[in-house]
């Protein structure tokens, strides 16, 4: 997500915090990781159709969502991209239920359409003629990417610590970088505007997405209903249609 997007979200969060307590309305506020954006937009529609409860969806980098929640933003559900950030919420006493993994994801190498630089695998990313960018280490995708490179015994210099996988996707699409490491789901939703290579199982990292009902939302039943839907078959079908793996 772009910095401007972050700002918009911040303003929206503040407005929500000031103006309208989510418990006072018949709606469920869901904070979700940026990498879940497209899937959760589809989940929102389906959940609203089934339950008649309105969903307010806010997507941003997981780290940013955690900062906002700890600063007092109110929401019913947090769907994070990694356990480390989720643990911060648990430690802060903001989680009402134990986090449950609702989806998994894997990493993929993304290149410009047609793969003009002939990237064939992780090892090629260390090539000197390539500009490669990863997410910053504070972003889950950045941590995972570095773990995968470690497993493969490859060291490379990221030209920029991008704030989100979406920024990497944009840079690849614009041709400003030759390759980057993102989630498989990002590659899938970009369609054929980019090329990609699957990272072999032995080097790949499985990202686990945990979800929890938040105590700040007060009306925990509303949050629990959404989590239940997420774990149910229809919910899982939607997630998998976007490329996420079953938990």
């Amino acid at each position: 997500m772009t910095p401007l997007g972050h700002l918009t979200l911040l303003v929206a969060t503040l407005a929500a915090g000031f103006g309208c307590d989510p418990s006072s309305r018949a709606s469920t506020t869901v904070f979700a990781s940026a990498s879940l954006t497209e899937a959760f937009e589809a989940l929102e529609i389906e959940f609203e159709r089934r339950s008649g409860t309105e969903v307010d969806l806010h997507c941003a980098g997981t780290a940013r969502l955690v900062v906002q929640l700890r600063a007092g933003a109110t929401a019913h559900v947090l769907a994070a991209a990694d356990l480390r950030n989720m643990q911060k919420i648990v430690n802060a006493g903001l989680a009402d239920t134990a986090p449950r993994t609702f989806a998994k994801n894997r990493l993929s190498i993304v290149m410009a359409e047609g793969n003009p630089k002939q990237v064939k695998g992780l090892r090629d990313l260390a090539r000197e003629d390539l500009l490669v960018a990863l997410c910053g280490p504070e972003v889950p995708a950045g941590t995972y990417a570095r773990q995968a490179l470690d497993k493969a015994g490859i060291s490379l210099v990221s030209v920029s610590d991008e704030p989100s996988v979406k920024a990497i996707m944009t840079m690849v699409q614009l041709g400003e970088i030759d390759a980057g490491i993102v989630y498989e789901t990002d590659v899938r939703s970009a369609g054929n505007t980019v090329a990609s290579i699957v990272i072999p199982e032995r080097h790949n990292i499985v990202a686990r997405y945990p979800v929890t009902v938040l105590s700040s939302g007060h009306a925990t039943t509303a949050g629990q209903a959404f989590v239940d839907f997420l774990m149910s078959q229809p919910g899982q079908r939607i997630l998998q249609s976007f490329g996420f793996l079953a938990p």
Partner: peptide
Amino acid sequence: GATITFAGNLKGSTRTMPLAIYVAFET
């Protein structure tokens, strides 16, 4: 805004104070 979009965000070469604040704020 223009810096992080155009120049990127790398410690020592493009991460200026505002970008460092942005990154540090999450960690």
